[in-house]
Simulated assay, not measured.
Amino acid sequence: MNTKTRKIIVAIIVVLVIAFLAFALPRLLDVVKTKAAVEPDILSGLGGKASYEIVNIYPHDSDCYTQGLVYENGLLYESCGLYGKSRLRVAKLEGGETLREIEIEDKYFAEGLTLLDNQLTMLTWQEGTAFIYQKDDFTQTSTFNYSTEGWGLTTDGNALILSDGSNTLYWMDPKSGLVVNEVHVTLEGNPISMLNELEFVNGEILANVYLTDTILRIDPGSGEVLTQIDLSGLMPDANKAKLGEVLNGIAWDKKTGRLFVTGKNWDVLYEIQLVPAIP
């Protein structure tokens, strides 16, 4: 093989290698990113009943009648309810400093809150109106109407998932509010109502049960309750004698697996780890 032929072969090999890298490298990077983005699993192995361990305690706005709670990048977005006192706020997890808040018109009772595509969607209780805000500055961009009461709200990354105090969860189009699916929540075949604040975690739904210390882990496909999580013992003494100042508010750090809970007008927010209940 002469020198010219060898040079041609080397050139062809170089071109083929470059072409292969141009094709394969982006896909390899996508695989790496996908693996890096896998959510920490905090729900498997809990069994039918679970409890908790306190990991950290953070300050919380005791003037906020918590309806919806969302965590992202060190910040907590929160909707606070009651007529004449409803507002939307964002605060630092560490230290609890309020960075921004807006008041909601007195005729609305703010309810569940979720974050999808950099927009916050907030329900109202009996007014049948959802408000959509830009996450960064709380500029209202649109609204939509729905026919049920609004209690809790979360998202599976595509649709909104709404609770209305019954045992039904509604999957809704995030722009129009059109209901695209319904699931009825049951425990051992019996309907479980009073489902309130929601959080979508590890492909499943966590739901506060209003006026209780219980969070339910729900299969979003069947509506079956997989785990009853007992959070009794978290309520501050100052809230025990006040009607309605109960456990409500679940937020989830997808990157680290941290789980946060609080309650209505509580002055603390807990980071907890879920553990199987001791028989």
Rank of each mutant, 00 (worst) to 15 (best):
N158L: 08
E53H: 12
N118L: 09
R100A: 04
I102R: 03
G157K: 06
Q126T: 14
Y52S: 09
N73V: 05
L43S: 00
L75G: 02
G84P: 04
T154Y: 15
G48E: 14
V90Y: 07
A50W: 04
D63H: 10
Y146P: 00
T139E: 14
Y77R: 01
E97Q: 12
D137E: 09
G45C: 13
L113W: 07
T148N: 10
R89G: 00
Q126R: 14
G48L: 11
L82W: 06
A50M: 00
G84S: 06
G45Q: 13
N145V: 10
L160V: 00
K92R: 13
L120R: 02
H60R: 04
E111L: 02
E105R: 13
Q119P: 07
S163Y: 06
G84D: 01
S147H: 09
V180D: 13
L88S: 03
S147F: 10
D173L: 06
Y65A: 10
S51R: 12
F131R: 03
G128W: 02
E78R: 03
E105C: 07
S142N: 15
N158Q: 12
D156R: 09
E111S: 01
L93R: 00
I102P: 03
E97M: 06
E149S: 08
D61N: 07
V90I: 07
Y108W: 12
A159V: 03
G157R: 07
G165I: 02
K85Y: 11
D61W: 00
E53W: 11
L178H: 14
T121W: 11
G112H: 11
L116W: 11
K135P: 05
S62D: 14
G128A: 08
E149I: 01
Y58M: 01
A110M: 12
S166D: 01
L169I: 04
Q67T: 13
T168C: 09
V179K: 13
L88R: 03
V90A: 02
S44R: 14
S166T: 12
T143W: 03
H60S: 01
G96E: 01
Q67E: 15
G177Q: 08
D173T: 04
T148C: 02
L116T: 10
Q140N: 04
S176F: 01
T66Y: 01
G84R: 09
E101A: 14
N145M: 14
Q140R: 11
E149G: 04
Y58S: 01
T129W: 08
A110V: 09
N118E: 14
M172S: 05
G68F: 12
T139R: 15
T139C: 07
V179F: 02
Q126C: 08
E101I: 07
D164G: 04
P59N: 01
G152F: 09
G157W: 09
L69R: 06
L82M: 12
L82E: 15
R100N: 09
L76F: 06
Y52A: 08
N158C: 05
T124N: 15
Q119K: 13
E103D: 12
D156S: 09
L178P: 08
